[in-house]
């Protein structure tokens, strides 16, 4: 399920275009100092719309390895 995913950001690749912020349905993201920043991770529903439309591959969801 979606609980097994983690939102990750590669800051060096972010050009601050704001596309992810605009398409995030739950307002998790903001552009701060020209770079995407997570402002409220609790609201993240792991929908992946940010990753789908990030032109710079700077934000994405990664599966978390099951520790058991």
């Amino acid at each position: 399920m979606s609980a097994g995913k983690k939102l990750l950001i590669t800051e060096d690749w972010c050009k601050g275009c704001g596309i992810c912020v605009e398409f995030c349905p739950t307002n998790v993201l903001e552009i701060k100092n020209g770079i995407v920043t997570v402002v409220d991770i609790d609201k993240c529903i792991k929908c992946g719309l940010c990753e789908l439309r990030c032109p710079d591959y700077a934000i994405y969801l990664e599966e978390i390895e099951n520790e058991s």
Partner: peptide, 21 residues
């Protein structure tokens, strides 16, 4: 992708990156 060549040269907000993905 060749990650050592990224970030790419396209402008901020250019959607070519979306197409390449």
């Amino acid at each position: 992708l060749r990650t050592n060549k990224l970030p790419h040269i396209w402008c901020a907000g250019c959607s070519n990156g979306i197409a390449m993905r």
